[in-house]
Simulated scan of single mutants.
Amino acid sequence: MTQDSVEPINAAPFAPLPSFDPRTVPVTAVDSDLPAVPATQLTPAALRARFAAPPPWEPEIWREPRFADRVPAQASVLVPIVMRDEPSVILTQRTTNLSTHSGQVAFPGGRVDPEDINVAAAALREAWEEVGLESRFVDILGSLPTYTTGTSFIITPVVALVRPGFVLTNNPYEVAESFEVPLAFLMNPANHRRHVMEWEASDGQHERREWFSMPYQDGKHERFVWGATAGMLRNLYRFLSA
């Protein structure tokens, strides 16, 4: 899952994914040998300083192998880091009626519309539309490199600090739940699990897909963070640990 191993932008044909439950796909490795981002680097001041003067670094994952035949679309997501005593990240559980990535854990976000002045504006608009997060509580820090999904969304992750005091109101059509996961948990590779799935496509070709998951036990609920969301969080880990 490195830049050198990803699929070229003009690769064809695509290989549709079979129906599967990602929770049942075996874990091939856990990256507990990598260091966690220290708590001192997860404070609002440290995060501001990192984005103000980024170090040399490379994202670990640029794109996923394409598995849907759709026209590429620009999108952005908000990576909202809440400034609590222990910083946390707002995530959503998407409803099952959506046409893409239904039922998955995701950041607030979506397509960039023509009226959006930039990707940050799109991310803020989507966060308001999906979970009612008001922009007056949000301070944009910067963006990570784009991440292209297997469904051909070219996503810009927009990282922001969020001041406590906000009230979320989920859009029932798009968001089943919204919740927070500790940033320290997500920035600790001991919680980053690797999965591999292999199958034979309809044309007889052998197909293979790899991804990360970061399942978080939230009381009675397991928040199964995986796929594109986990990939973007992994890139955030690489950025903060560089």
Rank of each mutant, 00 (worst) to 15 (best):
D33L: 07
R66S: 11
A11C: 11
P22C: 06
P56T: 06
L17C: 03
A12H: 12
D4F: 15
S5D: 15
A11Y: 07
I61K: 02
R23G: 05
R23D: 04
P22S: 12
P22N: 12
S5N: 13
F51E: 02
Q41I: 01
A11E: 08
P35A: 06
A11W: 04
T40H: 09
A52Q: 14
P35W: 08
A36V: 08
P8G: 10
T24P: 00
P26S: 10
I61T: 00
V27S: 04
P13I: 05
S5L: 12
V25P: 01
F14Y: 08
T40M: 09
S32M: 04
A15Q: 06
R50K: 15
D21Q: 03
D33R: 15
P18W: 13
R48E: 07
L47Y: 07
A15S: 12
A52M: 03
I9W: 15
L47F: 09
P18E: 02
E60Y: 06
A15M: 01
T2A: 07
Q41K: 14
V6K: 04
A39H: 05
E7I: 02
R50L: 01
D4P: 00
P38Q: 14
R48Q: 11
T24W: 09
P26L: 05
P18M: 02
P35G: 08
E60G: 15
P18K: 08
F51D: 04
E58S: 15
D31S: 13
D31P: 03
R23K: 14
P56M: 02
S5A: 09
V27C: 09
P44S: 07
E7C: 05
A46V: 07
F14S: 08
N10K: 14
A52Y: 01
P22Q: 04
N10W: 11
T28Y: 01
L47T: 02
E60Q: 14
S32K: 10
Q3H: 12
W62N: 06
F14Q: 03
P44T: 01
P16M: 02
A39L: 14
V27L: 12
V27D: 06
A45C: 03
F67R: 02
P55L: 10
R63L: 04
L42R: 03
L47G: 00
P55R: 12
T24K: 15
I61V: 15
L17S: 03
R48W: 01
P18H: 05
T2W: 09
Q41M: 13
D4M: 11
L17H: 10
F51R: 00
V27W: 05
